[in-house]
Design a protein around this nucleic acid. Structure first.
Lengths: 369, 369
DNA sequence: AAGCGCCGTGAAAACGGTTTCACAGCGCCC
DNA sequence: GGGCGCTGTGAAACCGTTTTCACGGCGCTT
């Protein structure tokens, strides 16, 4: 087997020193036209690509970005990674990808691994962006990073996300506007997702603003299968006082809940309206389409990388950047079904444009409570 | 800011040479208990993690695996990458992830980039595994790699996939057993997917074996939206001779086709049965569940990494390994509707061993038709 | 015509590990 | 008791690149 072709091989063939080869390739200094031509010819003839390892050793910085996400199986994260990859590639960098499986200890270990690889910076989605020893560590070492999908409450951490609480208020408002009063919120595990927490808070705020009592939150594991979700829902959807609407803290959960509700013999949205968050592509293909809050998933990943480069450049604020979300109602979210007997009253139900609901309605739901 | 802590810092603190520190950390040679304790104490006190770059420079091999897939947006690839990541992590390696966007030129460029990073090996899903200059290049340089989802016809290339032709024959067989005779095959672009080609061949073989004429294949871009698919289908589903079954070469395409067919006013599976390939998770959540051929996506990624390590170890055959697939009929694949008059004949149509398709449903849907 | 400065270039150091080689000390065997 | 071999350790080479420093030559200015 032939000896590997290094910068020395090229220099030898071009009849110059390795320093000159390096300079020609990087454009760090001008070489005479003659020498430059010889170097380029040698590089082409030998098909030489400089070793990133050698380069990195000198600068102690690679052209690599570390990525830590909870899971690739969730299309939301897969989509954002796709955005990161494209943006990084456009800037001559590659992605070192790791998944934490929602495990805080693993999160820490992965970051340590990535740092040992001398990544130029990191993009992370963590369980808790405010109380997080891993991020403290990065701050301490001055390693630039940008959070995605996290919405840290305390200042000093760069992040790209959407206004989750506002999005949730808007979605809850859409339910209220459609006449729903008993609205159940089903959340992914709070401990592994600040998104889930913030979206729940938005729901609580919207319900409170409408003078309605919020239902107790149901925390579910979105990775579990539909059967598990069905049994969790069984007790809640049984009686006549069952909710008419369910808001799920993400689309995967929502799709599973839709399936579970249907398996229980209820119609969606006929008996129960369901909506999710994230706006994953599949949501548009199911019928009826899943009501959701669409967020620019891919763009968020790309934007995070953009900001990471700003940070690496040195002059950039470590702030939370909120990208616009878009309410996508309809489909699985429909006006609440009227009680079978009282047709005229139900058809008279107004469509209020704002979440603030007429007091008549809150009275209506006060009775059963 | 403090000077970075290197192996020299550790050696100084432990009062020994850097060689000894290296030996203790790697276990390459035994040190006296005394020295070893001092080294470990120093490592702990300084929170030292050896730089992967320094290590790699010596051996010219990193603990990194390069991954090239068409796109992260397709859950099939995202799932297989998840499997790779877990397996690689378990073996102390990380993943350098890139996406080719189905572009052969980019494929080549990405591989060159990854090779320049001195990856220990590669896992690839390429457009054409048989005529591929990129793979020839890797073969030439002796860099180990394993293909995933590709099924190279010529020997000498390691791959992990399923028997796509057999899977397609089985799925087509399920349509035939359900009484379908006019079965349309909708394929992703042949030029970017040998899976698509092989699955089409399986369909052709099954049709020929049944003595039936195959419909002309319809090649579609699965990334296009449902509207595009609807217009492509418009002409084919119009007349009375329209197909009763559609096989799509992947699940994303199938879901989009289901949506398109429904938007055209036809029922699935009432008027037209539809099935896909891959067994993506979402397919189970839609109603009715998408008929498909399930393949162990995540396992395939993990297995590819296992085999890559075998290859890197030196003694392993470069063969195609076929993992088992599982036909998942039912849902969107139902017995063909009888001509309105002949009810008894239809009920005699054998119901292949579909796991959970309740007969209630097919009965229920017969009425409205 | 002399000196200054710039330009192109090469030699060599530096980066952070691993690994080879050498060597000292010690125990064991004959 | 002498030599052999093994063990623990350190010095130094080495990996491939970037970058600093030095230097020779040339052109321009005064």
């Amino acid at each position: 087997m032939p000896r590997p072709v290094t910068i020395r091989t090229v220099a030898e063939r071009a009849g110059c020193s390795i320093a000159t080869v390096s300079r020609v390739l990087n454009g760090t200094a001008r070489a005479s036209a003659d020498v430059e031509a010889r170097v380029r010819a040698a590089v082409a003839a030998l098909d030489f690509r400089p070793s990133e390892i050698g380069r990195s050793l000198k600068t102690l910085r690679t052209r690599t970005l570390g990525v830590v996400i909870p899971s690739l199986t969730n299309p939301v994260f897969a989509g954002s990674v796709a955005g990161m990859e494209a943006e990084a590639r456009g800037r001559g960098h590659t992605l070192l990808l790791t998944a934490s499986d929602y495990d805080a200890a693993r999160e820490q270990d992965l970051v340590a691994t990535l740092v040992a690889q001398s990544v130029a910076g990191l993009v992370l989605t963590v369980a808790d962006p405010d109380a997080n020893p891993t991020l403290d560590l990065l701050d301490g070492q001055g390693i630039p990073y940008v959070l995605v999908y996290n919405e840290p409450q305390r200042p000093g951490r760069a992040a790209v996300t959407v206004d989750n609480a506002a999005a949730s208020r808007a979605l809850t408002g859409a339910f209220l506007a459609a006449g729903h009063r008993r609205i159940l919120f089903i959340a992914g595990r709070f401990s592994t997702s600040d998104r889930s927490r913030l979206r729940h808070q938005g729901y609580l705020a919207a319900m409170a603003a409408a003078g309605l009592a919020a239902e107790p939150v149901l925390e579910l594991d979105y990775l579990a299968d539909t059967a598990a979700h069905r049994s969790a829902l069984a007790g809640l959807l049984g009686g006549p006082e069952r909710p008419t609407g369910i808001i799920c803290s993400n689309d995967l959960l929502a799709l599973s809940v839709v399936a579970a509700v249907r398996e229980m013999g209820l119609a969606v949205p006929g008996d129960i309206s369901v909506a999710g968050f994230d706006g994953i592509a599949i949501g548009r293909l199911v019928s009826p389409p899943l009501a959701t809050v669409d967020q620019p998933t891919r763009r968020m990943g790309a934007r995070a990388v953009e900001r990471l480069f700003d940070l690496m450049g040195g002059d950039a604020a470590r702030t939370v950047e909120l990208l616009p979300f878009e309410l996508r109602p309809g489909g699985t979210l429909s006006p609440v079904s009227p009680p079978v007997a009282s047709a005229p009253r139900a058809s008279a139900t107004p469509q209020p444009p704002s979440p603030k609901s007429p007091s008549r309605k809150s009275a209506a739901r006060k009775a059963p409570r």
